[in-house]
Nucleic acid binder design. Sequence first.
DNA 1: CTTGACTCTGACGTTACGTCATACTCGACG
DNA 2: CGTCGAGTATGACGTAACGTCAGAGTCAAG
Lengths: 260, 260
Amino acid sequence: MDESQHKPYRARDFAKLAGVTVRTLHHYDRLGLLKPRRNGAGYRLYAARDLERLEHIVALKFLGVPLKQIKTLMARERIELPDALTRQRRVLEEKRRLLDNAIAAVRDAETALRSGQRSDAAALKKIIEVIEMQSDTEWAKKYYSEEARATIDERKRLWSPELQERVSKEWSDLFRDVEAALDEHPASEKAQALAERWTKLVEGFTGGDPEVAKGLNNLYKDRANWPTHVQQQMQPYSNQKVWAYMSQVMAERKRNRSEP
Amino acid sequence: MDESQHKPYRARDFAKLAGVTVRTLHHYDRLGLLKPRRNGAGYRLYAARDLERLEHIVALKFLGVPLKQIKTLMARERIELPDALTRQRRVLEEKRRLLDNAIAAVRDAETALRSGQRSDAAALKKIIEVIEMQSDTEWAKKYYSEEARATIDERKRLWSPELQERVSKEWSDLFRDVEAALDEHPASEKAQALAERWTKLVEGFTGGDPEVAKGLNNLYKDRANWPTHVQQQMQPYSNQKVWAYMSQVMAERKRNRSEP
DNA sequence: CTTGACTCTGACGTTACGTCATACTCGACG
DNA sequence: CGTCGAGTATGACGTAACGTCAGAGTCAAG
C-alpha cells in the first residue's frame, strides 16, 4: 500500500526519461553500473531511485570520466568525489588548451591559404609547427617524476603562445651572445651576466621547483635518444662549446654566491 | 648517381623522424594512407618524399580529421583542403564550447561542494543542469534542415550563458504576463504589445532566418514526442490557453501590419 | 488469439592504434 | 663464415562506449 512505489519503468520509457538510449541501459547493466530489477520474463524494471543513479552516471560521463572510474567512484562516493571533480577539471582544462592550439593553427593555415595564395603544403606546415611545439611536451614526460609532471601541468596554464614566442627569442639571443663570449674568463662580469640570464630562463621553466629541475637534467643527459625531429629543432643549440663554457661559468657563479 | 637519393629509412628511424610509432606506420600502410617501398625481405623503406606525406597526415590528424577523410582528402588535395580546414575548425570550435560548459559546470559543482557543505548529489545536480541545456540542442536537430542547422551553429557562438539566462527569464516573464492578460481583446494595445515581445524573442533565436523558423515550427508541432525530461522542463510553458490566445493575437498583428 | 510494438541476448562494427606472440632479417663481431 | 642482439613483419586480440543488426521471446490491445 505504499503510494510512493510508482509503477516501474521499462527500458524504453526510462531511457527517454533520462535522455539516453535503450542500448546504453543494456551497456550499463552489463558493466554493473546500473542493475535494475527484472520481471519474470527478464525485462528490466527501473524504479525512481534508479533514475537518480543514472543521472549521476550521465553527469560524470558528461565530464569525460570513464565508466570504469564512475563505477568505483559511485561505490564509495562521499570521500572521493570532490577530488575526482578537481582532477577531471584539470583534464578538461588541458584538453581545452590543446583545442585552442589546434584552432589557432587552423586559423593560421586558412589565412596562409587565402591571403598569400600559398600552397596546401605551406598551409599544413603551419599546423605542423604547432603540433611539434605541443607534442614536445608529450614525449618528454618520461623524464619527469610524477610530482614534477603535476607541477609542470600547473605552470603550463600560464604559458601563452606569446610568452612562448618571447622565451624562444630570449634563448636564441642568449645562445648567440654566449657563442660570442667564449673567450671571456668564466669569472668575468660579462660571463657572470650571461649566467644570470641563463639561470633566469631556466627558472622561468622550472619555477624554482627542484623536482622539475631534476627532470630537466635527465632530459638533457639523454639528448642522444631524443626524437630526430626534436634534435633537428634543437640544432641551433647543439654547439657543445657553449654548453661546456656555460658549465664553467655556472661553477664560478656558485662559488661567488657561496663566498660573497 | 643521383646524389639526392638519400639512403631510405627503415621503420624505426623513420618513425622517430616524424614523431610517431612503428605501429602507426604499419597502420597507415594497411589503410593505404602511406605505402612505402619494400626491400626483398619485405622491410618497409621510407624515402624523404614519404616524410612530407606523413607530416601532412599527422597535421590533419592533429586537427581531429579521421584517417578515412584524410585519405580521400589527400587523393584529390588541391581543391578541397581549404573547405576541409574551415569545416574542421567549426568542429573544433564546437568542441571547445562544450568543453567550456563542462569546465564551468565542474567549477559550480566544486563550489557547491566546498562552500555550502552540500551533498554529492546536489553537486552533481549542478552538472546535470548544464548537460540538459546543451543536450537539448542535440536531440532537436532532427527537426531542422541541413541549412537551418548550419545557421543555428553559426548563431550559437553568440550564445553566452548570461544571454541564455536573460532570455530564459524574459520568456518566463512574458508567459506569466500573457497568462494574466488572457481576457484582453487580441487586437487591444496591451495584447499587441505582448505580441511584439513574443516576436522579438522568437527572432532572437531564429535571427530572422525562415529556415530556422520552419524547423522551430516542426519542433513545436511534434512536442508530444519530445524526451520526457524536456517536457518536464517545458512544463511551465505548457498552458494551452496561452498558446491558443497568442495565435489569435499574432493573427491580429498580421492584419494590422498588412493594412496599417 | 492475433498482431504490432517492445524486449532480451548475443555478436560484430567503429577509431586509431597498443601490446603481445611468433618467425624472419640485418649487420657487426669474432 | 657463423652467430647473436637488435630490428622487422604479420596476425590477432584489446581498448571505450556504445550503434546496429539478427533471431527469438513477451506484452497488451482488439
